[in-house]
Design a protein around this nucleic acid. Structure first.
Length: 841
RNA sequence: GCGAAAGUGGCGGAACUGGCAGACGCGCCGGACUUAGGAUCCGGUAGCCGUAAGGCUUUGGGGGUUCGACUCCCCCCUUUCGCACCA
């Protein structure tokens, strides 16, 4: 008897997969395709189990789909540009490229040792010119379509990373990567016009029925659509969603950044300027999150409310945001909490103009929830008596006719700032010519290669500007003297379309051949962390549409099904190098093997949930695999031979029929758990049950001495009944095949041991036979007044009348019926599950 | 503050559309085998009462709908996550 030695087996099959190119695929219109993808990896150095959990999840799905006959694309690559590489260069002098490529090599080895079934020939790294030239290509396409543009703007600046951040990358006022407090700077920046797609991204979310609601909600909130109106108060345009309250607009509030405010500050001098400076000095994020007290000052100016005809004062308020809407709002203190507080503080008048539909005019001195709600207009001239919704429509229309306003839709989403003042990224392919101005690089000159830099200082300006050979280049249009753009692209550009490139990763005339994406796209199953819910996942949806509009694909949405996998915690905390609590998969593989590691991570919790790492749990999974190993090993001689007929139910005894039933029940359950449910943990427990059943069966039929450990010589008994051999063979083979997505190395080894040459994919997924799974008997619980009082064992096809009779006669039940009157008997359920419920008084 | 999800044994977690709560595993306890067992195999393991048969209680708390509720409805508590002055 051979021991279970994962190390040897795993090496053997990994070599086999590599040598036979087992997971490489080409388009095959004759077979259904399945594109299975995990978010590609940032090559940070070493992958810990938290990282690789995601790849294991995807691998189980990919392997299972392959066995079910799908042509499965399962590629992997590297999100290889980015700051850590550059920081490593500044700190240790290693070139970012060296650092990145070394890390990729190490991590690739880790993934291969885990046995993830990737089509490695499609591997890509975004830091190679072969990849990033297409970033530049699509950038120029976007420029041509006015989807990329440059403007000076106030931007988020991370002092830790020394670069600009997109709004999506600012989390609670801090840098998403390094946690530094984000400040603002005024810079010339490149933007992608994602706002042009705001409505489409919002509408498209409705089609994403296989995405977690949580992610869709986050995206909807991020896009933040609100319908309202822009209204002119003389020269000041405000945005409001509550034009129905405009008769109550007792003042106008301007953001400190508002252009008029800046102008007046110059004109009015010191006092004005001092107050303004104070607001601007207030921490930007504190102001935005409402931690700073609401305050403001009177500009001394007034405008006419175009509906009341009355003059209203103009104030500057620190809580009004310059970047949202028009940077100006109408203050309606009676119907807005913030305006109310403001009015109280500065003794401004409060005029109620909405009353509840079923109530009186509210007390203007109080602010309630009801005051903010819709109602019926009062004190609103000709509009009195109209409900809010009708009033909004009418007021908006009247404003339009009077040419003092219009209905509009406002988004929270802003254009995506992609300029980064760093080295390790895609050069932005434009030049600035002394005579022609800004000129994009010619397509035939792509890629604009990132020059080799030798010194990394970490200074806060674009490193590329320090390389004259890069900066100075001829103008693509006139050939004259020009200077290259020295900013690089946000690395989120790289990750916004890599899943399309995987369909055709070596194409050197286009980002990808449209036909390949037409075949493989969209990604059928995509898994990764929730932390990308709004960054990567919204950018990718945007880019897919851009590629569509450029004519390379017909896809609207890139990812059909999204699974957001939970994190792996150790000691209650996220694993991180700095906390010193990382679990290295290689260490675990050394101890228990890759199969046990995979099985444990899949079994311990549903994929979406976070898990707490325990070594004991891993050991348990190892024990299970060893148990399977012993079972198959000891039976392989008996059931592995040729010429064993399929089990025919007529010749089977009760135990044999029982095992067959369990086998097919398990096939049904595990299949559904994997596809479509992706409840990987319960699929594993189903397999464990089957193994327990097999042991019990072997014990009873004395197939072999199951009590022997793997260090003992087995005493294989002679199995006399052909039926026993047949049902064991069926059960064990189904077990091995269904186990193979989880523990692929061991499954291949056992499959071979069982006398099969072609491997588990060729064998296919086991088929479920409903007839066999059907039980001849069933247990029916009996309740009396809602309490379980007995169980009946009856024929599966027992009639309701029979059940009723048996239930009443059952000793345990009868005891509770004594001296009572039966009011009602309910017999419910069907198929394999029925119940008798008796009501007595 | 707003929004969403979730609260089940000592622990991780099961329970598909309302139908035997606690599958499966970890841990623990016991038995077998054994010089030995931290290997293996078998059994037990929600709590309380009882030698037992059995009974009572139990899915965060309280109410409700139902023959029947972890599951549906209402109120409350807690946790996690997201948004956070968006006019």
């Amino acid at each position: 008897m051979a021991d279970y030695k994962p190390r040897t087996i795993e090496k053997k099959w990994q070599d086999h997969w590599r040598d036979t190119r087992a997971f490489e695929v080409t388009e095959d219109p004759a077979r259904p395709k399945f594109y299975c993808l995990e978010m590609f990896a940032y090559p940070s150095g070493h992958a810990h189990v938290g990282h690789v959990r995601n790849y294991m999840i995807g691998d189980v799905v990919a392997r299972m789909k392959r066995m079910r006959g799908f042509n499965v694309l399962h590629p992997f690559g590297w999100d290889a540009f980015g700051l850590p590489a550059e920081n490593a260069a500044i700190k240790h002098g290693t070139h970012p490229e060296t650092w990145t490529l070394d890390n990729i090599e190490h991590m690739k080895g880790q993934l291969q040792r885990i046995g993830i079934s990737y089509a490695w020939e499609r591997e890509l790294a975004t830091c190679t010119p072969e990849y990033y030239r297409w970033n530049q290509w699509i950038f120029i396409k976007m420029l041509e379509r006015d989807l990329a543009y440059k403007r000076r703007s106030s931007v988020n600046w991370c002092p830790g990373c020394n670069t600009v951040l997109a709004n999506e990358q600012v989390v609670n006022g801090e840098c998403w990567r390094c946690g530094s407090a984000v400040s603002t700077r005024d810079l010339e920046q490149w933007f992608f016009r994602i706002t042009k797609y705001a409505d489409e991204l919002l509408a498209g979310a409705k089609t994403l029925t296989e995405w977690p609601d949580k992610v869709l909600t986050m995206q909807r909130n991020w896009i933040g659509r609100s319908e309202g109106a822009r209204v002119h108060f003389d020269g000041i345009e405000v945005f409001t969603t509550r034009i129905d309250t405009i008769y109550g607009a007792n003042f106008i509030l301007l953001a400190p950044e508002h252009a008029l405010v800046q102008e007046w500050a110059k004109a009015d001098g010191a006092a004005f300027d001092a107050s303004l400076k104070r607001f601007q000095g207030q921490d930007r994020t504190a102001r935005m999150t409402g931690e700073v007290e609401k305050e403001g000052f009177d500009t001394g100016r007034t405008v006419i409310n175009p509906f009341t005809g009355q003059p209203v004062p103009i104030w500057v308020a620190n809580f009004v945001l310059g970047e949202y809407g028009t940077g100006a709002v109408m203050g309606v203190p009676a119907h807005d909490q913030r305006d109310f507080e403001f009015a109280r503080k500065y003794n401004l008048p409060v005029t109620a103009v909405i009353r509840p539909a079923d109530g009186d005019i509210p007390d203007a001195a109080a602010m309630t929830e009801a005051a903010e709600a819709d109602g019926v207009l009062v004190n609103s001239g000709a509009y009195d008596g109209l409900p809010s919704d009708q009033a909004r429509a009418k007021l908006t229309e009247d404003a339009r006719q009077r040419q003092i306003g219009e209905g509009t839709i406002q988004y929270r989403l802003k254009d995506w700032g992609i300029s980064r003042q760093r080295y390790w990224g895609t050069p932005i392919p434009v030049l600035y010519c002394d005579t022609c101005g800004m000129v994009p690089e010619k397509y035939e000159n792509l890629p604009v290669e990132l020059p080799r830099m030798t010194e990394f200082t970490g200074r806060g300006d674009s490193p590329l500007a320090q390389i004259p050979e890069f900066v100075n280049a001829p103008c693509p249009r006139c050939g004259g003297t020009a200077r290259r753009e020295t900013d690089t692209m946000d690395t989120f550009v790289d990750s916004s379309w890599y899943f399309l490139r995987f369909c055709d990763p070596h194409n050197d005339t286009l980002p990808f051949d449209p036909a390949t994406v037409a075949y493989w796209g969209p990604v059928d199953f995509y898994s990764g962390g929730v932390e990308h819910a709004i960054l990567h996942l919204i950018y990718s949806r945007f880019f897919t549409r851009v590629f569509r509009d450029v004519g390379l694909t017909t896809l609207d949405e890139p990812f059909t099904r999204l699974l957001t996998q939970g994190m792996v915690l150790k000691d209650g905390q996220v694993m991180s190098k700095s906390k010193g609590n990382v679990v290295d998969p290689d260490d675990m593989i050394d101890k228990f093997g890759a199969d046990a590691l995979r099985l444990y991570v899949m079994f311990v919790a549903p994929p979406e949930k976070e898990i707490e790492w325990t070594d004991a749990g891993l050991e348990g999974s190892w024990r299970f695999l060893a148990r399977v190993w012993r079972l198959v090993d000891q039976l392989s001689e008996t059931i592995g031979g040729a010429g064993i007929p399929a089990p025919a139910s007529g010749e089977l005894n009760d135990d044999e029929r029982g095992l067959r039933r369990k086998t097919h029940e398990t096939i049904r359950r595990v299949t559904l758990d994997l596809d479509p449910r992706v409840h990987l943990n319960t699929a594993v427990s189903g397999l464990m049950e089957l193994v327990n059943e097999l042991y019990a069966f072997c014990n009873k039929s004395q197939c072999f001495d199951v009590g022997r450990g793997q260090d003992d010589v087995a005493s294989v008994g002679v199995i006399e009944r052909p039926g026993t051999v047949a049902v064991l063979k069926e059960a064990v083979e189904a077990l091995v095949l269904m186990l193979s997505p989880f523990a692929p190395h061991m499954a291949e080894e056992l499959w071979e041991k069982l006398g099969h040459a072609g491997g588990v994919v060729a064998a296919g997924w086991p088929a479920f036979d409903a007839e066999v799974a059907k039980a001849s008997e069933m247990t029916v619980p009996v309740q009396v007044n809602g309490k379980l009082r007995g169980r009946l064992t009856v024929a599966a096809d027992a009639s309701d009348d029979q059940l009723r009779e048996l239930a009443v006669a059952d000793a345990g039940v009868a005891k509770h019926l004594e001296g009572k009157t039966i009011r009602k008997v309910v017999i419910a359920g069907g198929g394999g599950s029925r119940i008798v419920s008796i009501v007595v008084t």
